[in-house]
Simulated scan of single mutants.
Amino acid sequence: MSTIAELELAANEFALAETLASHPEIEFEVVRMAAHDRDHVMPYIRVSGATFEGLTDSLDGDPSVDELRLLDDLEDERLYRMHWVSDIQTVLHMVLDQGATVVEMHGRGDRWFLRVLFPDREALSATHDFCTENDLTFTIRNIHDLQGSVGRGEFGLTREQYEALVRAAERGYFDVPRETTMSDLAAEMGVSQQALSERLRRGHKALINSALRVEKSPLEQ
């Protein structure tokens, strides 16, 4: 039975450790990642934060990073492509040895958060054992078995993303013209507009990846 696991990794044991420590206010989101061998993985990373001062220099000097390229530079967001060449044992084990797919991955400050689709519980347990044997932090925050899940689990949605999407649809946020605003929805749900926007965006991404994309995942190519 396929399983979605929500995981946390210690930033100081993973790629970009020095960069995250130098820029704790910046969030790093992996929007696409390819892993072909045990020498490196190639992620596309969206970064967001109040300031990017010194970020490119930090990435250039980070020992886990090679072949850095800035692809897009907006006022409050950047997109980089790079190679991770060290401290990536956990992801390589999940993807190459256990046949897992990283659905979501973002890091900030002292930790990385991942949502990973494992082919079964045994693959998740094997990854946990691998990290324990190699003294690597591997914290399991939640597990969803896809079979028998209702609504959100089968599409890789978190509870917050599922509730945000359903509430937005019920209130006519996706109608043309819209029957409610982001501000009103956020107030109704008791969250900030930024938090609600993020849940909707990531929820849309999860739905597209699970329900609409029929080609191979970049991790499987």
Rank of each mutant, 00 (worst) to 15 (best):
N142W: 03
R46G: 00
G99Y: 04
M94D: 15
A187T: 11
M105W: 14
H23P: 03
P119W: 05
L70N: 10
R46H: 05
M1R: 14
Y162L: 05
L114F: 14
R202T: 14
L117D: 03
T101M: 11
L114G: 02
L146H: 08
D184R: 12
D175Q: 11
D57E: 15
L74I: 01
F118N: 00
E198R: 15
F130Q: 03
E29L: 10
I88T: 09
E154K: 14
H93I: 00
L165Y: 06
E53I: 12
M94G: 11
E163L: 13
D76K: 11
S48A: 13
R202L: 12
M42K: 15
A168T: 07
H40P: 00
D73A: 08
A5M: 08
E6A: 12
T139S: 10
T56I: 10
D87F: 11
S217R: 05
E160H: 11
V41D: 07
E104I: 01
Y173N: 08
H40L: 10
Q161F: 06
V214K: 01
L219F: 04
E25V: 01
H128T: 10
D76S: 13
T51D: 15
S197G: 10
R199N: 13
K216P: 00
V30K: 02
I4P: 07
D135M: 06
L212K: 01
H40D: 01
R111F: 09
R152N: 05
H23Q: 13
R69I: 06
R111V: 11
T101C: 08
D120S: 12
T181S: 15
A10R: 14
V47E: 04
L59N: 03
D72E: 15
A195R: 08
N12A: 02
A164E: 02
R171E: 15
A15R: 06
S183N: 06
A211Y: 07
Q193K: 15
D66I: 05
V214P: 00
A17H: 10
E154I: 13
S197H: 09
M105C: 15
P24I: 04
F174W: 11
F174N: 12
A169G: 02
K205P: 00
P63W: 07
Q221M: 13
H93F: 15
A186H: 03
H40E: 06
T127W: 01
E122R: 11
D39M: 11
G49M: 07
Y44N: 06
M189S: 09
M1T: 14
R213V: 12
V65H: 03
V214W: 09
M42H: 12
Q194W: 04
M94T: 03
D39R: 15
T3R: 10
L219N: 02
G172Q: 09
E179Q: 15
E179M: 09
M33D: 06
P218V: 04
L59D: 02
D72F: 12
L157K: 02
R201A: 12
G153Y: 02
L165V: 05
V150N: 08
V191A: 05
N12M: 04
T56R: 11
L79R: 07
